[in-house]
Write a protein that binds this DNA or RNA. Structure first.
Length: 864
RNA sequence: GGGCGGUUAGCUCAGCUGGUCAGAGCACCUGCUUUACACGCAGGGGGUCGGGGGUUCGAGCCCCUCACCGCCCA
C-alpha cells in the first residue's frame, strides 16, 4: 500500500512522535536478538558495563553512539552481530550509594550487619539496576537486551572465583603484608590506579636528630607525625656531607628511639637537606628501603586513621591532631630547625576524595609480570590495535612498568574471595567451602576491576564452551574512554590471553572525552553536566547522535550544542527532501540509476563518491568526517542543487524526463537513507517505510555500495560549470539589486568543452540565464571561472556594477601578481615540479585575461 | 618529575602524504511569503592559522624554542 499521502501535511520531522514507535518496531522485529546459529561472519562489541548505580551521561551517550553506529553498519553489511550489554556491580560506588540511602533512615551498614546489608544492596540493584540500560534505548542502541549480564550474576561470579583460584594455583596471587593505599573513610585498600594525584600546598619541616658521638643530622619531612614510626635515617652513599655519620646511631625526636644512619641510593641528594628519615610504615619508598635493609616496620597511624598505641600518650589522636602536636613539640624542644612552604603532589582516593594514607596491612596481591608479557606482545605486534594509535603508548608505558596488583578490598559489596580460613588461621583457596566445620570465608572482596577483567568472555558463558562463546569470542572492537585503558582494557587483554585462549578484541577505539563548553570536566557536582536524555527530548536521538559524532575526534572536545542542532536540521532536511520526491515523483517510478540527463548522472556520481567516503570513514573511525560528508551530500549536493534542478522536470509534462528524475531521486534517497542509517537510525527508518515496495526494516537492509553506480566525470564537470555560472549570476543580481530571477543573458567565452552550451536548459532552470550569441548592448560581467560573460540590460545599472567590477578587478590583479611573482622566482621554476609550475602559469594567464576583460567592461561603463 | 595532546574566523571545530587550504556549522549583516523544508532560500563581511627562530623554490602543515591550556603516569 502506498502511504505517500500521509506525508502531505507533515512539514516537519518531529522526532518525539517517531522514535518510540520506530524503536518498538525494531524490538518486535527481533532486530536486537543475536543468535549464534545465524550464518555470516561474526561481529561482536561488548558494551563497557556501566556502573549499576549509573545513569546515562554524555560519555555513555557518545560511547554508545559509536558502538551502535558500528553495530548497525556491520549488521547491514550482513555480519552476524552481537552487542552485549550489562552492568558492573561497582563495589565501592554501589556500597556508597546504598549507605547513603541507609543514612536517610539514620542507619549505617554496621547497624544492619554484613548479610543484611548485602541483601539490601541486591534489593536496591533489582529495583534500579537497569535504569541505565533502559536509557540506552532512548539513544536507539541496538544491543541484545535479552542478554543483559551483571558482574555478580551467579555464573559470572563463579567464573571470577575460578580465575582467582587458577591465578593462586599458579602462584601469581599471594597474600602479603605490604604498604598499600589506604582510604580511611572507606576503610579499605585501593589499587594504585584508583589513586588520583593532585598538587597540594604543604609545609616542609626540617628536623634535627642528634647523632651518637656528638653532632646532629637534619632531615626534611612534610609529615612530622610519622617521626613516631621512624626506624632509620638514610643518606645517599655519595653524599660527602654525611659520609662520616653513616653507621652511627641517631636519636629520633619525640620518642627518643635509637635508629641507625644508613646509606641508600634511592635518597635524593638534592632534596631538602639530603637526609631522609625512614618510616617504612607510612611511605612507599621508605617501605622498600626498609625491606632491603632489614628494618622493622612500625605503624604510628592505624587503619582507622588514628594514632596507634606505638606511643601510648599519643594514641587515639587523629592524623591531623597528631600533626599539630608533633610540630608543636618539635618546636618546643628546639628540634624544628626550619619550615618552608612546599607544593607537592599528593595521592587522593578517587572514590571518597580523602587523602590516601599509605599503611601496612595484610592484603592479596596478583603479580603481573607473566600476565603482562604476552599482553604487551599482542599490542606491539599489531594483533590488538589502538585508535588513535598513540593511545597504545598509555597502555605500553604502564604495562612495561607494571607492579603487583592489590586485588583485595575491605568492603561488603562484591565478590568474596574464594579463600577459606580454618580456626587455626591456616587457609585454603578453592571455590567451594571445604569439608568439615569451622571454615570461614575471607571477609575481603575483590577489586571491581578484577571481575570486569573477565567481561568479554564471562558474559558469553565462559568457562563453558557455549555456542555464543565459540561464535563471538574474540570480539572485534572495544569502544571506551582513555581513562580506563589501564584499569580495564589492559586487564581484559591479559586475562583474555591467559584464560579465554586469546585476545578479547582486535581493535580498541578510544572515544573523545567530552568536556563542558567552558573546558572544565563535565560533572554533576561541578554543575557542568549536560544530560543527554534532555538533549534527546529537545532535539531527538538522531540529532544527539549526529552531534556527538560530529564533535568527537582524536582528542578531547568541548561540548557544542550547535552540532546537535545541526543534526536536527539535517533530519528535518532529509525528511522534507524525501517528502518532495515522494509527493511529486512519477507514481510508477522505482529507484533506478536512470542517468537520462547530466544532472541525474552528476548526482549519481556524487552519491557514489559519498558512499565511498563514508564507508572509508566508518572503517577508519573517522566519524566526524563521515558526518561532514553526509551533511554536505544531503544538504548541499542533493537538496540545494539536484532537487532544485529537477523540480521543473517533476512538475513538467515531459514524461521521460520526469521518470528519469523520479527514478534517480528515489535511488539517491534509498541509498542515502541506508548510508545515513548508522548515524541517524530513526528518521531514516521512518522514511524508508514510505519508499515504494519496502519488504523489511532499513536496519536489516544492505549497506549501500558504490559498486554499480556509474561514475561520470564528464557530467560532473558539466554540472559543476553550471553551478559556477549560476552562482556568478546570483552574485551579480544581488550586487545590482536585480531580484533573484531577473533574466540574464550570457555569451560563451572559454567554454571549451561545451559544458555550458550543452546544459542550456539547466542554466535556465537553475539560474534564469539564457545563452545568446550576440549580446545586447549594456553592462557585462565575466564569470570568475571564465566560460561566459553575463550581460544585463539597462545602462542605469552602470553605477551599481562599477564597485563590483572594481572589486573583482582588484582580486584578479592580486591573484595574477601572486602567480607571476612565483613564476618570476627562478628557483621556483627550476626546482618545483613541472605540473606545479604549469598550473601556476595557467593561473597567471587566466587571471590576466579576466583582469583585461574587467578593465574593458569598466571602460565600457563610462564615467570616470 | 616524566610523557601525551592542544593553541586556525565572535563560538565549537575540519584542514590526509608541505604547492587554489585559508574551510564548515552556529552567530553576524543584506535580500527573499521562489507551490519540500523559515529547523527554509540566496548573497555577504570576518582569520598576518599562539609568540620567536629555522629548513624549503614554497609551511597551519616539517624542525627547534618559548608561552599558555588540558590530560595521563609517578
Amino acid at each position: 500500500m502506498d502511504r505517500r499521502a500521509e506525508l502531505e501535511g507533515r512539514t516537519r520531522y518531529e522526532a518525539a512522535e517517531v522514535e518510540g514507535r520506530i524503536f518498538a518496531g525494531w524490538r518486535d522485529d527481533g532486530l536486537f536478538d543475536a543468535d549464534p546459529a545465524i550464518p555470516g561472519e561474526p561481529f561482536c562489541i561488548q558494551l563497557p558495563p556501566p556502573n549499576v548505580t549509573g545513569s546515562l551521561h554524555m560519555g555513555h551517550a557518545l560511547n554508545g553512539t559509536v558502538q551502535d553506529l558500528l553495530i548497525r553498519w556491520r549488521r547491514m553489511e550482513g555480519r552476524n552481530v552481537l552487542w552485549q550489554p550489562g552492568t558492573d556491580h561497582a563495589g565501592i560506588a554501589t556500597q556508597m550509594v546504598v549507605e547513603r540511602e541507609l543514612a536517610k533512615e539514620g542507619l549505617s551498614r554496621h547497624d544492619l550487619g554484613r548479610d543484611a546489608f548485602v541483601e539490601r544492596v541486591w534489593a536496591w540493584k533489582e529495583q534500579t539496576g537497569s535504569t541505565i540500560i533502559e536509557q540506552y534505548k532512548r539513544l536507539g542502541a541496538s544491543m541484545d537486551y535479552g542478554r543483559e549480564r551483571f558482574t555478580m550474576d551467579a555464573d559470572y561470579a563463579r567464573a571470577v572465583q575460578d580465575v582467582f583460584v587458577a591465578l593462586h594455583a599458579k602462584g601469581w596471587i599471594y597474600r602479603d603484608e605490604y604498604l598499600v593505599n589506604w582510604s580511611v573513610p572507606l576503610a579499605t585498600a585501593i589499587s594504585d590506579l584508583e589513586v588520583e594525584h593532585r598538587d597540594v600546598d604543604d609545609a616542609l619541616y626540617e628536623v634535627a636528630y642528634p647523632v651518637e658521638g656528638g653532632g646532629e643530622i637534619v632531615i626534611a619531612t612534610v609529615r612530622p607525625v610519622t617521626i613516631l614510626a621512624d626506624v632509620a635515617i638514610a643518606v645517599h652513599p655519595d653524599d660527602e656531607r654525611y659520609r662520616d655519620l653513616v653507621g652511627r646511631m641517631a636519636t629520633v625526636p619525640l620518642v627518643g628511639r635509637q635508629v641507625p644512619v644508613i646509606a641508600d641510593e634511592r635518597v635524593e641528594i638534592g632534596f631538602g637537606t639530603g637526609a631522609l628519615k625512614i618510616t617504612p610504615g607510612h611511605d612507599p619508598t621508605d617501605f622498600e628501603i626498609g625491606r632491603d635493609h632489614g628494618l622493622e616496620t612500625l605503624s604510628a597511624i592505624g587503619l582507622d586513621g588514628r594514632l596507634t598505641d606505638l606511643v601510648p600518650e599519643w594514641e587515639g589522636l587523629d592524623a591531623e591532631e597528631g600533626h599539630a602536636r608533633a610540630v608543636e613539640r618539635l618546636r618546643e624542644t628546639g628540634a624544628l630547625r626550619a619550615e618552608h612552604p612546599y607544593r607537592h603532589s599528593v595521592g587522593f582516593c578517587s572514590r571518597s576524595g580523602a587523602r590516601i594514607e599509605p599503611l601496612v596491612s595484610l592484603q592479596w596481591f596478583c603479580r603481573m609480570d607473566e600476565l603482562a608479557a604476552p599482553a604487551i606482545d599482542v599490542v606491539k605486534s599489531g594483533q590488538v590495535r589502538f585508535h588513535p594509535e598513540r593511545m597504545a603508548k598509555i597502555y605500553l608505558d604502564w604495562m612495561e612498568a607494571i607492579r603487583p596488583w592489590c586485588v583485595s578490598r575491605q568492603l561488603w559489596w562484591g565478590h568474596r574471595l574464594p579463600v577459606w580460613f580454618a580456626p587455626d588461621g591456616s587457609y585454603v583457596v578453592q571455590v567451594d567451602r571445604p569439608e568439615g566445620d569451622g571454615w570461614e570465608q575471607s571477609t575481603d572482596v575483590l577489586d571491581t576491576w578484577f571481575s570486569s577483567a573477565l567481561w568479554p568472555y564471562a558474559t558469553l558463558g565462559w568457562p563453558e564452551r557455549t555456542p555464543s562463546l565459540e561464535r563471538w569470542y574474540p570480539g572485534n572492537v572495544l569502544v571506551t574512554g582513555r581513562d580506563i585503558i589501564n584499569l580495564w582494557v589492559a586487564r581484559m587483554i591479559m586475562t583474555g590471553i591467559e584464560f579465554a585462549g586469546g585476545i578479547p578484541f582486535t581493535d580498541v577505539y578510544i572515544n573523545s572525552t567530552i568536556q563542558a563548553a567552558d573546558g572544565r570536566r563535565m560533572s554533576k557536582s561541578l554543575g557542568t553536566g549536560v544530560d543527554p536524555l534532555e538533549l534527546i527530548d529537545r532535539y531527538g536521538a538522531d540529532a544527539t547522535r549526529y552531534g556527538l559524532l560530529k564533535m568527537c575526534s582524536t582528542q578531547d572536545v568541548r561540548f557544542a550544542e550547535g552540532m546537535i542542532d545541526e543534526g536536527r536540521g539535517l533530519a528535518n532536511k532529509l525528511f522534507n527532501a524525501t517528502r518532495l520526491v515522494l509527493l511529486n515523483a512519477d507514481p510508477e517510478a522505482r529507484p533506478a540509476p536512470n542517468g537520462l540527463e547530466a544532472a541525474d548522472r552528476w548526482i549519481l556520481d556524487r552519491l557514489a563518491a559519498t558512499i565511498a567516503e563514508v564507508t572509508a570513514d566508518f572503517a577508519a573511525y573517522r566519524f566526524s568526517q563521515a558526518t561532514k560528508a553526509l551533511y554536505a551530500f544531503v544538504w548541499n549536493e542533493f537538496c540545494d542543487w539536484y532537487l532544485e534542478a529537477i523540480k521543473a522536470r517533476l512538475y513538467g509534462d515531459d514524461a521521460a524526463s520526469k521518470r528519469a528524475a523520479s527514478e534517480t531521486a528515489l535511488l539517491v534517497i534509498e541509498r542515502t537513507l541506508a548510508l545515513l542509517h548508522p548515524v541517524m537510525p530513526f528518521v531514516t527508518e521512518e522514511l524508508w517505510a514510505y519508499l515504494p515496495e519496502r519488504a523489511g526494516p532499513l536496519a536489516r537492509a544492505p549497506f549501500p555500495s558504490a559498486d554499480g553506480l556509474p561514475r561520470d566525470p564528464v557530467a560532473a564537470a558539466a554540472v559543476d560549470a553550471v553551478i559556477e555560472a549560476v552562482q556568478g549570476a546570483r552574485r551579480l543580481r544581488q550586487d545590482a539589486d536585480l531580484g533573484p530571477r531577473h533574466p540574464l543573458s550570457a555569451v560563451l567565452a572559454g567554454d571549451d568543452d561545451g559544458a555550458l552550451a550543452a546544459e542550456r536548459a539547466l542554466l535556465d532552470a537553475l539560474g534564469a540565464i539564457t545563452l545568446v550569441v550576440q549580446p545586447e548592448p549594456g553592462p557585462a560581467v565575466p564569470l570568475p571561472a571564465g566560460r561566459a560573460t553575463l550581460h544585463v540590460q539597462g545602462a542605469e545599472l552602470a553605477d551599481k556594477l562599477r564597485g563590483r567590477l572594481e572589486r573583482r578587478l582588484a582580486e584578479a590583479r592580486a591573484e595574477q601578481a601572486k602567480a607571476q611573482g612565483k613564476l618570476g622566482n627562478a628557483k621556483f621554476v627550476e626546482r618545483a615540479p613541472a605540473e606545479v609550475v604549469a598550473e601556476e602559469r595557467e593561473r597567471a594567464e587566466r587571471f590576466g585575461r579576466d583582469a583585461a576583460e574587467l578593465e574593458a567592461q569598466l571602460a565600457a561603463l563610462g564615467g570616470d
